[in-house]
Design a binder for these strands. Structure first.
Lengths: 337, 337
DNA sequence: AGCATTGATGGTAACGTTGTCAATTCTGAA
DNA sequence: TTCAGAATTGACAACGTTACCATCAATGCT
């Protein structure tokens, strides 16, 4: 019966320190009412043995683990990467950890991964968007742990949402276009507007224009995912159909920048002949002349705020925010409008 | 003693189906030797109750969980985002899940997060780079679970590594520059070459040039993180000091593209007056004319391969690869060299 | 002095699952 | 018909931790 050299447990630590298991446990998690001597002895034993707590065991005893299920469509989309960075920042120095689930822009996949992750008894769920499959919504509603929906803030959250308003974003850009005096306006999207968010933005953009008596001249939604190339292609298709357009709003910065490069290379004067505006406020803009006009989406803040709220909720702090949390979007005026 | 309505357990399912707990367990995990009747009854009961297995409990019983600790510097860097996407792809349809740890380009932080994540009894560890703190290396070496180091393949892995050779990458570009006839060559990096990988690449680049009798004219390492702006600034600084330079290798595509935009806007002819090349092969390149010459780093493949190997190892498949796995890098010839 | 309160420590059971072994039933060959 | 072996099902213990309660000593108050 040669015992395999495996990780030391609390029992080992307690034995080594000559105390009871429960006392060792108390020291390790800084419970109150511990004498300095006991604390010192247990600490020493833990160090000597290289003890690492087994959180799996701890989580089983408690009702929930310190794992937070984070479900987003994809990591390659820098929007979600930024959100994840923000969340992790919020978790820094806490026992909370992110367990990742990627939905690949598919509601069924999202539902499946949600079920999967719930089997880890997460302390909370952070999920992107307000739209989910009926079953997923039902599951989320029944959940006892905090559920934070990130990105959108148009609509009612299941529990709490942290995001910004796609409607406002669309309106802000419409107002800007109108203020600049543009009247023959177009729109370019991509990927069949798959993340529904972009459609919300466009509809609000169109509606605000219409309110002011300006009808969107034309729109072009590319099949492919957003990219510089798609932006250039979209713009070309749009202008081929509707050459009178004088200003274009793009679903995101990638598309807009691709279109900008196209304009620069074929000699379309920006913004004199054609004004361009994007959405997101990627750092990328900074090195490009003329600097792109866009709307800053508070991606990092969303993540950090969601992480912090999750922490507060898990800790049971009464100060923890709830409901819809609407971060503001702001126009970043560049030189392309 | 009103029982809180909480998640049903196997006991509930078993009771509902009129069978023993262990039988229910066997049905749920598709163990052999189960009668169709039993299977059907348990399945029905599980559905009726909405049973979700508690993997925390399952993991405690077994020796390791199905969680895989993935430690990378940052999500905002698209290189790691792509790797994570790849890993998750490899885990699709398996019980393996990613628990995320971000080291923020800091070895001490990496060590700390490693310790943190180990307390979840992970089935394996995927960590970026071959360089870790001494303590972290020691921990990783002692680990019983698979350890896969991703990105680099210059050097010896602790257990298994999946990546590409920074040295080869540097050499490939040096050979390309030489083949194109460039002799007055410069280099631009950023962020004090913080991810050590870029320095490895540069040194190999310089060494290969030197082997062929060409001394690097000058190099400029920006303080800031890589960005278009840093690339433009770096190029300007470089040319201010060494205007005779005719070709520049950049630490990555972001820098190179920023420099390219700068050249386009100030009228430096590319590649006639100045040749530019980047590194990574980001999709971004596709929409920009002239298309950037670069080296494709197999980011997604690294992730997918690492994920698959992790799965094979966890499953105990003898086919599971080990040791150093070197993915190839290839030159993507564009129009900037 | 008597008694409640607090501080410090320990014992026991439980969290939900699964590995191990035992018990029972069934199958097919002798 | 009988019996070995397979198929099927179950009982029990254990994984490492912590909640709960118990114990005992020290302290403070009337």
């Amino acid at each position: 019966m040669t015992k395999v050299v495996s990780r030391p447990t609390l029992r080992d630590v307690a034995h080594h320190a000559g105390v009871s298991v429960i006392s060792a446990s108390r020291v390790m998690r800084d419970a109150p009412n511990i004498s300095d001597g006991l604390r010192a002895r247990v600490r020493a034993a833990a160090n000597a043995l290289g003890y690492t707590p087994n959180r799996i065991a701890g989580s089983l005893r408690g009702q929930a683990s310190d794992l937070v299920a984070v479900i987003v469509p994809s990591m390659s989309n820098s929007v979600f990467a930024d959100i994840l960075d923000g969340i992790d920042e919020g978790f820094k120095g806490t026992p909370l950890r992110t367990v990742l689930g990627l939905s690949r822009y598919d509601m069924d996949e999202e539902e499946a991964i949600l079920r999967e992750l719930l089997s880890w008894n997460p302390a909370g769920v952070i999920i992107s968007g307000l739209e989910h499959s009926a079953a997923a919504t039902a599951i989320l509603q029944r959940l006892e742990c905090p559920v934070i929906e990130v990105m959108d803030s148009d609509g009612d959250p299941i529990d709490t949402s942290v995001g910004f308003s796609m409607v406002k974003a669309g309106q802000v850009m419409a107002d800007h276009f109108l203020a600049q005096g543009y009247r023959r306006i177009g729109y370019v999207g991509a990927w069949g507007e798959l993340p529904v968010r972009s459609r919300k933005r466009r509809l609000a953009f169109e509606a605000r224009l219409a309110e002011n008596g300006v009808e969107l001249v034309d729109r072009q939604i590319e099949e492919d995912q957003s990219s510089f190339a798609a932006g250039a292609a979209g713009l070309q298709a749009l202008l081929a159909r509707s050459p009178e357009i004088e200003a274009v709003f793009f679903a995101n910065d990638d598309l807009a920048l691709g279109a900008l490069f196209h304009c620069l290379s074929v000699g379309i004067a920006v913004p004199e002949r054609l004004a361009l505006a994007g959405f997101n406020g990627l750092d990328m803009r900074d090195g490009i002349t003329p600097r792109l006009t866009t709307i800053r989406s508070p991606r990092n803040e969303i993540g950090a705020r969601a992480g912090r709220i999750m922490l507060d909720r898990v800790r049971g702090r009464p100060s923890a925010e709830r409901g819809r949390i609407d971060l503001s979007v702001s126009l970043l005026q560049g030189a392309t409008t």
